Amino acid sequence: MRGSRILPVGVLSAIAAAALVPRRPAITSTVDPNAPPRRLRLSDSTRHICVRVGVLFNSISMPRNVYAYDVDEGWIELKDGKRLYGSVEPYWRQPESPPLSHVEPLVSIIDPPAPTNVDRLSAAEEKRARKAAKRAAALR
């Protein structure tokens, strides 16, 4: 026949074998959407994520000197360029609460603030008034 092609036996057997191989089911993601990323490198575009992610390396909490990490390959890279291999577990850092000195005290409605004495002079003004009174007494 004109225009028909005959395929070599090896190609036909490969096609037949591929047709007989059962297809794998689609891989469903079991990754927690709330989990931190499994791989992260510090850059301008990821800076907002990097400040919220902490890293446990071999079950030890690392300070904020981790430049990059990869959970699947099991390494972290420090800011000084050293790469360490071991168990890597990223976690979300808890937001830091403001120090107590910055928290405003509660205003009590029951106990209104005591009125301040506006007529009172400052300490410097009182001192000047006493000196002026002494000079005036010395002149008499």
Rank of each mutant, 00 (worst) to 15 (best):
D70F: 04
D44R: 09
Y85A: 07
E73A: 15
N58A: 03
L106R: 09
K79T: 15
P105C: 07
R23S: 14
V107F: 05
S87M: 11
S4Q: 13
L100Q: 10
E104F: 10
S45R: 07
V31N: 01
P98Y: 00
D80S: 02
D70S: 15
V107Q: 10
P95N: 05
S122P: 08
V71W: 01
E96A: 13
I109Y: 12
I109H: 12
V31P: 00
T28M: 07
I6S: 06
A137T: 05
S45P: 00
Y67K: 14
H48R: 05
S101T: 12
S101G: 02
E73G: 02
T116D: 14
G54P: 01
I110H: 15
I60T: 15
P99Y: 06
P8R: 11
E89T: 12
R23H: 10
P115N: 08
Y85R: 11
I15S: 05
N58D: 15
A124N: 07
V71T: 11
K82H: 09
K127C: 04
L20D: 06
E126M: 12
R52D: 06
A136N: 13
S59G: 09
A17T: 09
A35N: 01
I49A: 01
R47Y: 07
E89Y: 03
R93S: 04
I76L: 02
G54L: 02
L78F: 07
A124W: 02
C50D: 02
Y91P: 02
D80E: 06
L42Y: 12
L139M: 11
R140S: 13
A14F: 05
S43N: 12
G86H: 11
L139K: 14
V71Q: 02
K127Q: 12
S43H: 04
V71E: 04
L42W: 10
Y69E: 00
V31W: 03
L7Y: 15
N58P: 05
R52M: 09
T116L: 15
V31D: 04
R5V: 15
P37K: 00
V88W: 01
A18N: 13
